[in-house]
């Protein structure tokens, strides 16, 4: 017994009522499971709208049906769809579209979802470029190379950053806080 440091015993593991012993998913709101095929067919619909020039309708459709219950692959498909829409909308149209969505019914919820995708998109594009930028030595030459290779990611990032800026102007910091505290992840 002397060898056991009693201060480091995890007492929660021994307590039947402890939070370590119940299913944490019961705390969050229930989300309906969504299959990847459903996400893909939704993405098809949205692309059609986008090709028809209705980028606002496409964005709305994508934001109103976030696949919270989908698996990783389904979520990635939806992320790709949303990034595509975001990249197709011109900078001057961002604010008017966002304020129209904000003023409509359920608009704040839609913008919260958009914020989640902006952050997720930032995470994705930076991890994609990070792998390209690995260089054996931090020489000036290899840095130039690295920058050349990350051009695509950098462009996606600048689009996301301008969306982020416009979004915070309209939905305020409350939108960011909701993105952070929400247990339904995209």
């Amino acid at each position: 017994m002397a060898a056991v440091n009693w201060r480091t015993i995890n007492i929660d593991a021994l307590d039947p009522d402890s939070p370590a012993n119940f299913d944490l998913t019961s705390l969050a709101p229930a989300v309906a499971p969504v299959s990847t095929a459903d996400v893909q067919s939704l993405a098809g619909h949205i692309r059609q709208l986008l090709r028809g020039g209705d980028s606002e309708g496409a964005l709305r459709g994508a934001l109103e049906n976030p696949p919270y219950g989908a698996d990783e692959r389904g979520k990635d498909v939806h992320l790709a769809t949303i990034i595509e829409i975001l990249q197709s909308i011109r900078q001057s149209e961002m604010s008017p579209i966002l304020s129209r969505i904000y003023q409509s019914d359920g608009g704040t919820e839609a913008l919260d979802v958009l914020m989640k995708y902006v952050y997720k998109g930032m995470g994705h594009s930076s991890s994609a470029t990070a792998t390209k930028q690995i260089t054996p030595q931090a020489t000036g030459f290899s840095q130039v190379h690295g920058r050349g290779g990350s051009e695509g990611g950098g462009q996606a990032m600048s689009v996301l950053l301008s969306w982020h800026e416009k979004l915070v102007e309209i939905a305020g910091p409350g939108c960011i806080v909701r993105t952070m505290s929400d247990r339904r992840v995209v």
């Binding site: 909701r178 505290s181 929400d182 339904r184």
Partner: peptide, 8 residues
């Protein structure tokens, strides 16, 4: 009661 995002 629980709200949508289940924030504390």
């Amino acid at each position: 009661y629980l709200n949508n995002t289940a924030g504390w």
